[in-house]
Design a protein around this nucleic acid. Structure first.
Lengths: 183, 183
DNA sequence: CCGAAATTTCCGTCACTACTGAAAAGTATA
DNA sequence: TATACTTTTCAGTAGTGACGGAAATTTCGG
């Protein structure tokens, strides 16, 4: 098996995107490869196709598995581990979101709570900082609460929400009397 | 002016978060500092408070300004440039989203379109890859379309959407007859 | 128009992370 | 249990990007 030009371009681009989002390039490339690959691949093959070392592949695969977007699979008659990615884009997206929430949003909320609490004891010179931190905390809580609600839904419902952007905008876009007064 | 413990912790954490999202640490720290600072700061002061070089601050500020979340301001009687961050969290979030869409989503869509087109000419062995790329393209388009609709709304409407997660979930969560059959 | 203050640019250095190769550990088969 | 095959770990290396310091440029007051 060799990579088609389209697959190559996608894999390289995915690597770049990964970097922009704080994900190591090889890891993103391995994911991209598994995503477009018709069959599961073994580590050796991945190493060959991406031209990176076997050990680098091993590390990347482990990471991808802890993220939950790549799974180890086996085929009878082959001792080697084989790997395949989640093939459903929405599902992949959800898993990544859930993981980033867990790794980044939750700790951020905890830290902000701590900071706000600490800033309450401070002298009045710190009032402004405390207010800003509170606003940041409120916003982060709002986002994660929204996410939690949405994440409960099955994939088709999620898809409906995302295709209903205009409808949602219309529903929530109406100005309240107060806002109308302000404008 | 010196940093309070709460401010320090927030700034450090924000730096870490930045890294996880592909943003350089100093840049994130400068932003955090300006976000919690009661008044605008000049570059010298930022350099001192964060203990990084003047030139590093200069670069970070320029980047933050191209992102549009930090503005140059002047006070009479002071030749030095002073800087302040957007103080509204939601607004900051919006600006960052818009910028990332422009920098990452749009190019990704362009590339995926190109790849799909190219893969159409290929032999049937590439069908699966093409299908996967198409799915990825559809998903990306769906997301950006949703975003475009939502982004039109004024901030209060946006806030209403984000506080209405449960309501939205209820509205779109109802199963269609088809889905009910499948389950 | 000159000089001082402030800012930006540039290039060398440093630090960090990704990466490799080799060795170690693990696993299945005979 | 030995052996061949596979995966993982680890320690050293390389490469990338952040950073600092100095020089160059710009800006402003006198």
């Amino acid at each position: 098996m060799e990579l088609t030009p389209a697959a190559k371009k996608f894999i390289l681009h995915w690597g770049e995107m990964g970097q922009a989002w704080g994900i190591n390039r090889t890891m993103a490339q391995v994911h991209a490869l598994l995503f477009v690959a018709p069959d599961s691949l073994d580590a050796e093959e991945i190493s060959r196709l991406l031209d990176v070392s076997r050990s680098n592949v091993s590390t990347s695969l482990r990471e991808l598995m802890t993220w939950g977007i790549v799974k180890r699979v086996h085929v009878i008659g082959d001792r080697r581990d084989r790997f395949e990615a989640l093939k459903d884009v929405m599902e992949t997206f959800r898993v990544i979101m859930a993981e980033r929430k867990r790794r980044e949003m939750d700790p951020t909320i905890a830290l902000l709570e701590h900071c706000v609490e600490e800033a309450e004891g401070g002298d009045s010179r710190d009032d402004y900082t405390r207010e800003q931190l509170e606003k940041m905390l409120d916003f982060t809580r709002m986002l994660t609460a929204w996410y939690s609600q949405i994440d409960r839904l099955p994939t088709p419902a999620l898809r409906r929400i995302f295709t209903a952007g205009a409808k949602i905008a219309r529903m929530f876009g109406a100005q309240t009397p107060h806002e109308a007064n302000v404008n």
